[in-house]
């Protein structure tokens, strides 16, 4: 396979599951910036090892395995970080996500649908929180509410979204297990 074709094939596969790989990493790494770093490192390792990928098998599972290694490697580098789960729990969570990974794509689609179902005020809060580098503190300053009130409001919206996603997937015959 020529380098160009190989690269295009890699991009096609990677792009199709990049949001899921990020979601996988984000579930295991507490800091978003760190999760972004791990995703970048994962992308590099995937590209370097792409020759080892068996075509016809599931790229996302292969990518999750490598992402898991990268998360562990990242933890090694941050060995003194106290904000971390134990290796046991990390293994459990990683295994669970890989086992249920086939539903992640449907979950992503369902989330797009469920965002459209939110009331306008909730929608606006999500938009404010997830555009740019806005933090709860920024929103609190802008709205005169407390940070904890913003956090609770987001928790409430998350619960709505989870219920909506579960309902959407149930209607479509999938399960929100991912």
């Amino acid at each position: 396979m020529s380098q160009n074709i190989r690269h295009e094939e890699f991009m096609r596969l990677f792009l199709s599951c990049e949001p899921r790989i990020f979601a996988f990493i984000r579930s295991l790494v507490f800091s978003r910036a760190d999760a972004d770093d791990v995703l970048q490192e994962t992308a590099l390792v995937l590209w370097e090892k792409f020759d080892q990928f068996e075509h016809g098998t599931r790229f996302d599972r292969w990518a999750f395995r490598i992402a898991h290694f990268q998360v562990m490697y990242h933890r090694q580098k941050r060995a003194r970080d106290r904000l971390r789960f134990s290796d046991t729990l990390l293994e459990q969570l990683g295994d669970d996500i890989v086992a249920e990974s086939q539903h992640l794509e449907a979950t992503q689609d369902a989330l797009a649908h469920c965002l459209g179902e939110l009331p306008a005020a909730d929608h606006e809060l999500i938009r404010q929180r997830y555009r740019g580098d806005t933090t709860n503190r920024d929103i609190a300053r802008g709205t005169g509410r407390s940070e904890s009130a913003i956090s609770r409001a987001l928790n409430r919206i998350y619960m709505k979204l989870m219920l909506c996603i579960e309902g959407t997937l149930a209607r479509d015959g999938a399960h929100f297990r991912a």
């Binding site: 990020f22 979601a23 579930s27 669970d96 996500i97 992640l104 979950t107 989870m162 929100f176 991912a178």
Partner: peptide, 12 residues
Amino acid sequence: YRQFMQISAMLE
């Protein structure tokens, strides 16, 4: 926890 964090990741 997984569902919660996955929604967070997707929204990010």
